[in-house]
Design a protein around this nucleic acid. Sequence first.
DNA 1: CCCCAGGGCCCGT
DNA 2: ACGGGCCATGGG
Length: 281
Amino acid sequence: MRYEIENNKIMLYDADTFTPEGALASGQVFRFGQTEKGTWWVISGGNRAEIEEITPKNYIISTTNPNFFVKYFDFDTNYDIILSRLNEHEILRSALKYSRGVRLLRQPLDEVIINFIVSANNNIPRIRNSVNKIAEKFGKKMPWGYSFPTLKDLSNATIEDFQEFGCGYRSGYLVDTIKILNETDFLERVQKMDTKQARRELLTLKGVGPKVADCILLFGMNRFDVFPVDTWIYKVYREEFSGKATNREQIADFFVNLFGMDSGYCQQYLFYYKRKHITLR
DNA sequence: CCCCAGGGCCCGT
DNA sequence: ACGGGCCATGGG
């Protein structure tokens, strides 16, 4: 797989380890969709990209910010090496084959924190709805829609605002955490810490428990020695690994001990495999 | 009416 | 450290 940047486009060739659906419809990101023509779009921060498949495994990604999306889609990482290591585990082989196009998106940290507080005990269509409404109310108007709001943009958002967006009892957590992030140097400090330290620190935020902390570390901080355990991964653990533990932190430890620095990639492949299909609408 | 969703909080033991 | 009740909200 290789890419070239031309003006406002990324040309992606021989994409064996990327598909728009695997990258976007894999529960890492919530402001994405598919047009009537079948092209995929995604918004992150103040950036939007549209992905068109020209011929099989060859794509044109149109965006005003190609460099942002090269990093976002992680095109400089060689997934063949990661996949060959994971493929040594026979138990993973069918899942890895199914999840060929999944990638670990490198997203803005503040956006990930907000999105995954909303995600707790929630389902993906509802998360998408809430996050889009947050953007429409507090983001900046762009030619193509609304940017995802910065923490400053959100500093005046109230509990009632978030309740109106369907965030339910998470609304108070959001207000509380936004205040901490705006009024302290939390984000600056946490990014300098090692994974275990950063995880402990993230757990002090309202609405951030073990699973959400691991998602923040994985999707927003590029820490791959974590294994977020949600209901789908819990099913994988029981059904594919015949696991008996019920404590989710113990299950996360089990997987990290098994897959080490490839844990984050492995988790995402397994989630996509078990979750199968995310309905768009 | 039930159960479920990329769970966390808060309280008891 | 661990378990259990409770929590908004919409869909199946």
